Simulated scan of single mutants.
Amino acid sequence: MRNPRKPILVAALSVGLLLSAAAQAEPKLVSSTPADGSTVEAPAKVELRFSEKLQAQHSGAKIIMTEMAGMAHAEPMGVKARVSASSDPNVMLITPASPLTSGTYRIDWRAGGAEGQPAKGAVTFKVK
């Protein structure tokens, strides 16, 4: 005699595997240079490395100066920068238009991979 619950169990497992694969489909930030939370000399560029190849049309970033040295109450302000691909398809490069001055910076990024919605996140660092 056949187990009447077997088709339901197989269907439930299949749906679980599909949902698990979809959850893993978005790129994950693997590392950044400068590292999140670090204090560094002014970098010429910021590199974000992801777990998979990025799709340029679904990826981007912006630099925001969130704290300016000597100005405790300054409003966050955008920093002009160019976002580009690297020779490594898993890396996004953010190059400020001019050298970063002393202060705290946040990189707000979105990264689209081959499937799924773009992932979003932020990296923060301080410039001496």
Results as ranks from 00 to 15, higher is better:
9 L>Y: 11
120 K>M: 09
17 L>Q: 11
117 Q>H: 04
115 E>P: 00
12 A>F: 12
58 H>N: 13
43 P>G: 12
98 S>I: 05
26 E>Q: 13
37 G>W: 07
13 L>P: 06
37 G>V: 05
91 V>G: 08
33 T>V: 14
56 A>C: 00
105 Y>M: 02
71 M>S: 02
48 L>F: 12
104 T>Q: 09
64 I>F: 00
3 N>P: 01
69 A>I: 03
28 K>S: 15
28 K>T: 15
43 P>S: 11
118 P>C: 02
111 A>Y: 06
8 I>V: 11
89 P>K: 13
49 R>L: 14
28 K>N: 11
102 S>P: 12
21 A>V: 14
108 D>T: 05
41 E>A: 12
12 A>C: 12
51 S>F: 07
105 Y>R: 03
115 E>V: 06
50 F>E: 09
26 E>Y: 08
67 E>K: 15
35 A>L: 13
59 S>W: 06
96 P>E: 10
73 H>T: 06
47 E>M: 07
113 G>E: 03
72 A>Q: 13
74 A>I: 05
122 A>Y: 09
68 M>H: 04
123 V>N: 04
15 V>R: 09
24 Q>C: 01
91 V>R: 07
63 I>T: 03
119 A>Q: 01
115 E>N: 05
116 G>Q: 07
101 T>H: 07
94 I>K: 02
92 M>E: 03
96 P>W: 05
12 A>V: 14
60 G>W: 07
83 V>G: 04
49 R>H: 09
78 G>W: 00
54 L>G: 06
32 S>R: 05
25 A>Y: 02
97 A>E: 13
30 V>R: 12
105 Y>T: 02
18 L>S: 13
59 S>D: 09
11 A>C: 02
111 A>H: 06
9 L>S: 10
34 P>A: 02
5 R>E: 15
3 N>V: 01
93 L>W: 01
50 F>G: 09
65 M>Y: 00
126 K>M: 12
96 P>Q: 09
54 L>Y: 09
120 K>L: 03
3 N>A: 02
3 N>K: 03
6 K>V: 10
68 M>T: 15
65 M>S: 03
100 L>P: 02
